[in-house]
């Protein structure tokens, strides 16, 4: 409604006739973390486990073995991957389906999805996807029931402000962003936590030690 735009702006200006002051916002909260890289990884691992997601720490170079084990343990055979995933992640024994405009219906019949991520936040046990390299479009990490996400140790930051700063530095603010902290969950029935509603019911986080 074109008239409404002018009307609302006029109402706002009239409501602010007393010209309220708004001094610059103080930013005295913690921005940078203080933990060593080892402690940071440990904290991230603990916090992810706290959400009842499965987290595994993987030595440098042993990622293919871990990927094989994770999918085998869950009987996942057909696994969706973004086209630009690292070639060493395409392990034998799993039928990888490249996401070439797969329909929602097709994604609904796939056993799992394997992606990387942009960064992870230790303090909150969060992984952040930004539709970047090795991450794919949002639907592929949403519809399948199992999401296996690989994180390199050096991608972990300690605090939320560090994560937002890094996203800005990467120029990712305007890309589609998804923050994931554990599997989907609801507490709507008598406050009983039930894991797995509409998003993947199983989230596996593989933390790869930096070489």
């Amino acid at each position: 409604m074109s008239g409404s735009r002018e009307l609302i702006l006029e109402r706002v200006r009239r409501a602010l006739a007393d010209a309220p002051l708004a001094p610059e916002s103080p930013r005295d909260y913690r921005r940078a973390g203080t933990l060593s890289p080892v402690a940071r990884t440990e904290l991230f691992y603990e916090r992810v486990c706290d959400y009842r997601a499965e987290a595994r720490r993987v030595r440098a170079g042993e990622l293919p073995v871990a990927i094989t084990e994770v999918f085998a343990a869950r009987g996942a055979q057909r696994v969706c991957v973004p086209n630009d995933i690292a070639s060493e992640w395409r392990v034998d024994g799993v039928n990888f389906v490249d996401d070439e405009e797969l329909s929602w219906e097709e994604l609904d019949h796939i056993d799992g999805v394997l992606t990387g991520c942009t960064l992870a936040i230790a303090e909150t046990g969060t992984i952040v996807l930004s539709a970047g390299a090795g991450e794919g479009r949002r639907a592929i990490t949403l519809i399948p029931d199992l999401h296996v996400c690989v994180i390199e140790e050096r991608q972990i930051v300690e605090t939320v402000p560090e994560a937002m700063t890094l996203l800005t530095e990467l120029g990712a603010q305007r890309r589609p962003l998804t923050f994931i902290s554990g599997p989907s969950a609801t507490s709507d029935i008598e406050l009983n936590r039930v894991e797995g509603v509409h998003g993947p019911r199983n989230l596996v986080v593989l933390i790869e030690e930096s070489a």
Binding site: R47, Y51, I121, E123, T124, G125, T126, R138, P176, L177, T178, F179, I180, S181, G182, P183, S184, A185, G199
Partner: peptide, 9 residues
């Protein structure tokens, strides 16, 4: 500490 999903677009 963080809700399971946050979407930004």
């Amino acid at each position: 500490r963080m809700n399971p999903y946050t979407s930004l677009w």
